[in-house]
């Protein structure tokens, strides 16, 4: 589903974010990418979303070279990918309901679907009673759950989560991991970055370790069959 082919990202000769990274992720996998801060984890995710371009190499989403897409095709690609971030990245002036509805609107969904699906997905993440709360009225864990709800509302093929538990206390972090595991069980491919060993342990699936922009190890022991 995702194929990195000798991808390098060099900001300047002293700053090599990625160095000839190659790996493949199959549909339905839950892959954790681990490494210290600055190892290149976020750069890797940005490549998939076409937020950043590789200096050399190619990134394929299914059979499409992500960076050959024109500016009209990129939003369509992003609608097939749900994103969750450490800092939640919710729209501050929109309520929980509106944040999720916005993702549906840009995907061209109709009002009836929006009215039906948004409360349902917020129920799934345990926020059925927080529909009309603004992000600043929610706790960190609640915000992250809204972000997850937004990421899955359009039933994406892939969900990428950049340090999703980084700002959460252990209880909330566990809850978020459990939700992500459920989403993966339902068939969505997930790529998660973290530097927290507890999170990797809880997920217990494939782990790619990155160090200084290179793949140090690719532990496929938990890879699904």
């Amino acid at each position: 589903m995702i194929y990195f082919d000798k991808v390098s990202k060099i900001y300047n000769p002293e700053t090599v974010a990625l160095d000839k990274v190659s790996f493949t992720i199959e549909p339905g996998e839950f892959v954790s990418i681990v490494g210290h801060s600055g190892a290149g984890k976020t750069t890797l995710l940005k490549m998939i979303l076409a937020e950043d371009k590789p200096s050399s190499g190619k990134v394929f989403f299914e059979s499409v070279d992500v960076h050959s897409l024109n500016r009209f095709a990129i939003p369509k690609l992003r609608r097939r990918v749900g994103s969750v971030f450490q800092d939640f990245r919710l729209l501050p002036n929109k309520t929980a309901y509106e944040n999720i509805a916005f993702a549906m609107e840009v995907a061209g969904r109709n009002e009836a679907d929006i009215k039906n699906d948004v409360p349902h997905v917020l129920d799934i993440v345990g926020l059925g009673d927080r529909l009309w709360h603004f992000p600043h009225e929610l706790s960190g864990g609640e915000r992250q759950r809204v972000a997850i709800a937004r990421a899955i509302i359009n039933q994406p093929d892939l969900l990428i989560a950049d340090e999703p538990t980084g700002s959460l206390d252990p209880d909330n972090a566990t809850e978020v991991i459990e939700i992500l595991k459920k989403i993966n069980d339902l068939g969505t491919t997930i790529i998660l970055t973290t530097h927290n060993p507890d999170v990797i342990e809880k997920i217990a699936k494939r782990v790619i370790e990155i160090e200084n922009g290179r793949i140090k190890s690719d532990d496929k022991k938990h890879k699904i069959q």
């Binding site: 979303l49 937020e51 500016r71 009209f72 939003p75 369509k76 690609l77 992003r78 609608r79 990918v81 994103s83 990245r89 919710l90 729209l91 501050p92 002036n93 916005f102 993702a103 609107e105 840009v106 995907a107 937004r150």
Partner: peptide, 16 residues
């Protein structure tokens, strides 16, 4: 500007 980058990430086209 952060809000705009979030809109782009969820796949909003320029018009949106």
């Amino acid at each position: 500007r952060e809000e705009i980058s979030v809109m782009r990430l969820v796949g909003a086209g320029n018009v949106y």
